[in-house]
Design a binder for these strands. Structure first.
Length: 292
DNA sequence: TTCCGATGGCCAC
DNA sequence: TGGCCCTCGGAAC
């Protein structure tokens, strides 16, 4: 579910609703009970987001690190919180705000040293005010990885997930399989700007909607998710820019969507390579989805 | 009601 | 590169 934009949105909401409140903490699922007892009764002093990581600072210097991973699920309530699901790993509750966390990849208490180590491993986050595009450019160009692979490497740029990767490369008109080392500064600047705009909008609105996506009645019930996107999950559908059918490859076990017609500036070096990227047939027919 | 896939990432090999 | 973690929404049945 979450890419960096969602994590920043959660952090903003929690700064507004939760910071300054004293919480009781428990772990209905039981896997975080000992740590929850340490959190219980403390006031939350700050929330920060870096890439896909959430970092909470509680009274007394107690630090909570959450990474939602692929399955993680966060619900927050200002009042009337329902009973937590049996899978709820951590519940923080106060009279006026609460959150329920289920299925996170990481939910742990960290020392300040461990938190510093974690942060030092993370690349530039386009949504952080302290992000340096110059450092991101340098990190992205390291090694021979294809651009699409480098973009998902959180040590180069943090917060980019599979949807943002596909849509930002599309908006910047960049071929995903070209070696990242061949990226020119002008190409990078388009890419960084596309990432920043997509993530800013999505952090504000709560979902990724790509400019120039095909018009669709997406505010109405029954709207298909891929109508928010130009290329992601649109295999075989016409590119909104040039009408070429969108391609899907599997790269490092992740679906990679792009337009083979217009995602090439023709500017840098060799044409896109296709090492170990294999066109994948769906294991079953796409499910029929009804339009509203 | 059942089953599959998903916006991640770590680890072993 | 594949397995695993272990949740939930939605399509299939």
């Amino acid at each position: 579910m979450p890419e960096g934009n969602i994590i920043h949105r959660i952090a903003r909401i929690h700064r507004r609703w939760l910071v300054g409140r004293r919480f009781t903490a428990d772990s209905p699922q039981g896997r975080f009970s000992t740590e929850a007892r340490r959190l219980s009764g403390r006031t939350l002093e700050g929330v920060d987001a870096h890439g896909k990581h959430l970092l909470y600072l509680f009274e007394g210097g107690v630090r909570l690190h959450i990474h939602l991973g692929l399955f993680g699920h966060m619900r927050h309530f200002r009042s009337g919180a329902p009973p937590p699901s049996p899978a709820c790993r951590l519940r923080l509750a106060s009279p006026h705000a609460a959150f329920h966390l289920a299925g996170p990849q990481a939910c742990e208490l960290l020392s300040s040293e461990a938190e510093a180590t974690l942060r030092s491993r993370l690349g530039e986050d386009p949504l952080r005010p302290d992000a340096s595009p110059a450092r991101a450019f340098e990190a992205l160009r390291r090694g021979r990885a294809p651009l699409a692979t480098a973009l998902l490497d959180q040590e180069r740029i943090s917060g980019v997930g599979n949807i943002l990767r596909a849509e930002a490369l599309f908006l910047a008109r960049l071929p995903p399989l070209r070696p990242a080392s061949e990226l020119r500064l002008a190409d990078f600047e388009r890419l960084w700007e596309a990432l920043r705009l997509l993530m800013e909008d999505a952090a504000r609105d709560g979902r990724i909607v790509v400019p120039h996506a095909p018009p669709a009645p997406w505010e109405t019930p029954g709207k298909r998710r891929e109508d928010r996107f130009c290329v992601y999950d649109r295999e075989g559908q016409p590119c909104p820019r040039c009408a070429t059918p969108i391609s899907r490859l599997t790269l490092a076990s992740r679906g990679l969507f792009f337009c083979p017609g217009c995602q090439d500036t023709g500017s840098a070096g060799k044409p896109a390579r296709r090492p170990r990227a294999v066109p994948v047939e769906r294991t079953r027919a796409p499910r029929a989805r009804s339009r509203a």
